[in-house]
């Protein structure tokens, strides 16, 4: 309709503004952005200052939800459990992914290796969680069969305090390590081959090459990858919800599960929104700190 005159006229008058056509083409995406992303962000912050419970209209309660959050031991438990999860998850995953990426770069460029390593990423968190829920089952799981056949004790991986979070963290390493390795691998490919040739000419060993060439030149990309994976890691939910639902007791009740319980178990949307703001603040602070500490913007290549 409105685009017809513009479209026919634009062939002759190139300088004329394309505004009507642009508005038409952007409208659906802009509605999506405004309605489902920008407005919810503002509305969510607004809700965190109310006692909204889905049934009655929200009532303004000032900072009550935030005061409650600071005094809520369950919130601090959830925050601590989440941080513990992120440290194990990101620590193991980054080291493994870096190793795999370097090997994919220096040892084999095989497409088959790269595809296989990514396969777990293609199934959902829920699938990964259930497969390991079975493999690690205390009585029948093959994992414990193997432990017993090696003369070790059975480990109730997902049903005791001491192992539940590391286990969930490692299940998610299984699913995500290939993806992270490929991200780092892409970064490695930006390092000029000449740097490696120079190291070779100087007689550097693979080990020296790794520490003196690869790590310094990869640093900015590694920092970006870390920011990305840490933000993802903080939002852990699926694996916990499917395998332990936060248990035993609260030892795997991560922040996002606590938020979900608060909203859909107890219908305290106001408080749940405040918790979301809390999680978002943590994410923003971490991103900022990491960006500063690692100088992610700089590159040693220049």
């Amino acid at each position: 309709m409105s685009n017809t005159p513009v479209a026919s006229g634009s062939a002759k008058k190139r300088s004329r503004s394309d505004l009507p056509l642009a508005v038409l083409m952007i409208a659906p995406a802009f509605i999506g952005l405004a309605v489902f992303l920008l407005w919810p962000t503002i509305y969510g912050i607004g809700l965190s200052f109310t006692n909204f419970n889905l049934l009655t209209p929200p009532k303004f309660v000032g900072f009550n939800n935030y005061i409650r959050m600071i005094e809520d031991p369950m919130f601090w438990n959830a925050a601590w459990v989440t941080v513990y999860y992120v440290v194990v998850n990101i620590g193991v995953q980054t080291v493994l992914a870096l190793g795999i990426a370097v090997l994919m770069h220096r040892l084999t460029q095989s497409m088959i290796v790269r595809s296989l390593i990514l396969t777990p990423y293609l199934v959902s968190n829920v699938v990964a969680a259930l497969v390991f829920f079975w493999i690690l089952d205390n009585q029948l799981g093959i994992g414990n069969h193997i432990l017993v056949s090696m003369g070790l004790e059975r480990i109730p991986f997902l049903s005791q305090d001491a192992t539940v979070i590391p286990t969930i963290a490692l299940i998610n390493v299984w699913r995500h390590v290939g993806y992270t390795a490929l991200l780092i691998f892409a970064g490695l490919q930006t390092i000029p081959e000449s740097a490696y040739e120079a190291a070779k000419v100087d007689g550097a060993s693979e080990w020296q090459t790794f520490w003196r060439i690869t790590v310094p030149l990869l640093r900015p990309i590694l920092a970006l990858v870390l920011i990305r994976t840490i933000i993802g890691s903080f939002q852990v939910f699926d694996t916990v919800a499917v395998t332990t639902a936060g248990g035993p007791v609260n030892s795997s009740r991560v922040l996002q599960l606590y938020i979900y319980n608060m909203a859909f178990g107890r219908f305290q949307f106001g408080y749940a929104s405040a918790l979301s703001v809390g999680l978002m603040v943590i994410l923003v602070v971490i991103t900022f700190l990491q960006y500063r500490l690692t100088r992610a913007g700089d590159t040693d290549l220049n």
Binding site: L47, S276, L283
Partner: peptide, 12 residues
Amino acid sequence: VPAIFTFLPNFV
């Protein structure tokens, strides 16, 4: 904007 932030308002 992290996804977590939009879930509750979008649900409403």
